[in-house]
Design a protein around this nucleic acid. Structure first.
Lengths: 100, 100
DNA sequence: ACAACATTTAGATAATTAGCTAAATATCAA
DNA sequence: TTGATATTTAGCTAATTATCTAAATGTTGT
C-alpha cells in the first residue's frame, strides 16, 4: 500500500492514471499529454508499474500501459477502512433492482 | 488536493490520521506511538496541517490535533471521481429507513 | 521569578526524487 | 543491413524530504 500512495503523490502520475481510465495507451501517446521529456515519463511509468497500478505489455515497437483499477481500489479501500472513513462514490443512489 | 496526496504519501502521517480517527490527541501523545524524535513528529504535523487534514488548537501546554475527516473525504472523492472509480466503503448495505 | 514541561524552530545531513541530455536497446520496413 | 521509430537506461543535477540534536518559545505551578 505504501508504494501505491507514493505513486499517487505525484500529480503527473495521477493524471496518467486518469488518462488510462479511458483506454490503454502506449508510452508515447501518454507522454504527448505532458510537457516533460520521455525519459522522465518513463521513470514515472516505472513507479506506477512498481506500485502495480499499471500493467505494461510490449506490442511491436510500442509498450502499452493499462490501468489496473482493482489494485487502486484495494489500496483505497484498505486505507479508508483503516481510517474508518465511509466513502460512497456511487453515481446513483437509486437502489439496484432485480430484473422485474 | 496535491497537498493531501503528498501528506498521505508518508506512512507515519497516515498512521497519525489513523490514531486521530478515534479521538483528538496532543502532540506528545501522538509522538509516543512512533519511534522518531518529537521535532520530526512536529514536522509531520506541519505537513498534515498544511494539507488541512488536521486542525491544531493550543490548550494549556499542549497542542491538540484533531482529524478533519471531511477534507480527507473530499480529496478522495475528487480523486476517485476523476479516475472514474466507484468505491463503496459502507459497512452495511441494508438500506437506511426513516423512523417508522 | 523560576523551574518544569510541551512543543516548535534552527540548522545540519543523508537519502530520495523529478527532471534533463545523451546513449543504448529493440523492432520494423525498405 | 541500414535507417527510422519507440522506449528505456545511464549519468548527472537541483530540489525536496525525513531525520537528528540543540536551542528557543510558551505555559503553568510554586
Amino acid at each position: 500500500m505504501n508504494k501505491v500512495f507514493k505513486a499517487l503523490s505525484d500529480p503527473t502520475r495521477r493524471q496518467v492514471l486518469q488518462l488510462l481510465r479511458d483506454k490503454p495507451m502506449n508510452a508515447g501517446e501518454l507522454a504527448e499529454h505532458f510537457s516533460v521529456s520521455k525519459p522522465t515519463m518513463s521513470a514515472h511509468f516505472t513507479v506506477l508499474r512498481e506500485a502495480n497500478l499499471v500493467d505494461a505489455s510490449k506490442v511491436g515497437k510500442s509498450v502499452i500501459y493499462r490501468l489496473k483499477l482493482s489494485v487502486l481500489e484495494d489500496a483505497l479501500l484498505a486505507f479508508t477502512g483503516a481510517i474508518g472513513l465511509e466513502l460512497n462514490t456511487e453515481k446513483n443512489t437509486t437502489s439496484q433492482r432485480d430484473t422485474p
